[in-house]
Design a binder for these strands. Structure first.
Lengths: 342, 342
DNA sequence: TTGAAAGCGTTACCAC
DNA sequence: GTGGTAACGCTTTCAA
């Protein structure tokens, strides 16, 4: 048998063709494909054979139009190149992909205008759901999506307000409190904290965790040792350098993320201090560089894959209407990872 | 949160509604939306006003079915959590997004079975194009996609065979040769090379670059100083440790990627050697950790955003049929980044 | 310059 | 258990 190379002008094989070939109606073919109603074993076999023989593949576009469902889930993030988001996307994809959902990637670039435009696109394209990760969905945007029938889950919105839509969040406060307690107990000297940018949505929660941990141990936070910096290596380096150049000598520096921490370690070294011998350092995020740092960085693992999976599961329940109640707020734990830096 | 099921009574506003409201035909409305044929200024104004007033938004699904185009481009990668892929995706998205294409993410997980399944999905979903990055597209898969009208560009296939479809590649060999030459010239002692896994698609090209650079300077490659390791921190650490424990003392270690290099620096330090004082080290990829390493790592920047943009541009020409000729192979340069480690 | 109407390929409703 | 057929909302001929 010669398999004719498919001429681009050849029409695709359709349900109609299969129906004709199997001697049944289109309705029956559709049913066999979707198990949407009982069919006798005999005809099912005949139809399956025809599908096989003709090499029929259902046209997704037609199905989407008919059902008003694109079988697509959008992942909306501020910047896909930031380490955690690809992991979140992968976690979500692990759940969604096998179920036939396509994962579409949208990058807001941190711009409000882009956020709005993305919301329009999502409704126009009739995506079934959206996982909005890393920033708080604007209430108006959430409403617009919901009213268009787009299910939503907001991951790490980083706001204290009780949102009227499903969220998945990491308990950064508790994780930081925990780490602070464990590590601070090891050092008798002064403790410094280098937080993130004051306007960044995760910064207050991590700082609150640090303060709570200190309080748990009855240790005081010295205002002169509380700094804030951009979430970057340079930010951490400059912040600790400033502290050291002010003549302060913290025994431990708790940092709001790993980049800051690794920068702080560099500053310590530049000032002739050994880590952790003279000054201990901790981070948050457990990025690749944390394990590769010298010394390896004590930090907090936020399990980004699990965040993605959890968001996908919640979304799925909304999309399939297996849950249609009021907003759910899921909180996941993050865990300290003890390494050599503190 | 209550996801309102789409109310059957407030049907979406359709072209039909706009046409009725403006007192024109659907054809005219369609034309105004797509500028597909001339329209008098008067009616255009009337139609635009109606669109505005009714808040009409075209239904993408219907358009897609009619045109047999999903206006979606797939980005297919082995593992989206590997640093370069998100950058490639973002670069491609920068070009494609503003043109109305949706970017869908597909992760092969490095599995041939998954690759095949993705190809099926892409044809079923009628994506307009696919950027396959980081592994060589199987010839059969390429054919299947092309026959289904899916435009393709293969990024960093990492094979020497001349592929019958468009490719974008980085000239890793020249970049490595260049770096090897520049850096080797600084050291009189022996030079070691820690390559990637022998079966990995980029490994031979980088090693070839190293060998060529050495040859350019008339320096010999000592077989006892040629190692290969997984592309990981541990891989690099173990590989250099083994070399050192064999009693060899390379003055410079050229590594096939940054993770290996940073691991090698750790091994050097553990053996009481100063970097770069006793042993210099170089990497490849210019990951975040390279800049944060102590000392900062001399490496090679492969411009992943530009790779994504370039792939998107080639794909675009195929999708719009503004190019329909034979396969094009675009080669991009990577550049040495000189830092303190060598 | 505009309109009427035929699809695009499914699914889902209503009969039988 | 099965078939006929009307949508889904748009674009695109073909006529006027």
């Amino acid at each position: 048998m010669v398999t004719a190379p498919r001429d681009p002008f050849d029409r695709r094989v359709t349900v109609r063709d299969v129906a004709a070939h199997a001697g049944v109606s289109q309705a029956t073919v559709s049913q066999v494909l979707n198990s949407s109603r009982p069919v006798s074993e005999a005809t099912r076999a005949r139809v399956t054979a025809s599908i096989e023989e003709l090499g029929f593949r259902p046209n997704h576009l037609a199905r989407a139009l008919r059902q008003q469902k694109s079988h697509t889930v959008a992942i909306v993030v501020p910047n896909i190149t930031h380490v955690t988001y690809p992991m979140v996307a992968r976690g979500a994809g692990e759940i969604l992909g096998p179920l036939g959902y396509q994962v579409a990637l949208y990058d807001t670039n941190g711009l409000r205008a882009t956020e709005k435009q993305i919301v329009r696109t999502l409704t126009d394209r009739m995506v079934d759901g959206a996982i909005v990760f890393g920033y708080p969905l604007a209430p108006g945007d959430a409403r617009a999506l919901q009213e268009s029938g787009v299910a939503i889950v907001n991951g790490n919105p980083g706001t204290e307000a009780l949102l009227r839509w499903d969220t998945v969040e990491v308990d950064e406060m508790s994780a930081m409190r925990d780490l602070t307690r464990t590590v601070t107990a090891r050092y008798a000297g002064q403790i410094a904290y280098i937080g993130g940018p004051v306007d960044h949505n995760t910064a207050p929660r991590r700082e609150a965790g640090f303060r709570a941990g200190m309080q748990d141990l009855g240790r005081a936070c010295d205002a002169g040792l509380m700094a804030s910096a951009p979430y970057t290596w340079a930010g951490g380096r400059n912040a600790l350098a400033a502290i050291l150049e002010n003549g302060m000598r913290p025994r431990l520096v708790v940092c709001a993320n790993d980049m800051i921490a690794i920068g702080a370690m560099a500053a310590a070294r530049e000032h002739g201090l050994d880590v952790p011998g003279d000054v201990a350092v901790t981070g948050y995020d457990n990025i690749d560089a944390a394990e590769m740092a010298v010394p390896p960085l004590t930090t907090i693992e936020p399990f980004p894959f699990e965040q993605g999976r959890a968001a996908a599961r919640l979304l799925l329940e909304r999309m399939t209407d297996s849950y249609a109640g009021t907003a759910r707020h899921l909180t996941l734990a993050a865990e300290p990872v003890d390494r050599a830096s503190a």
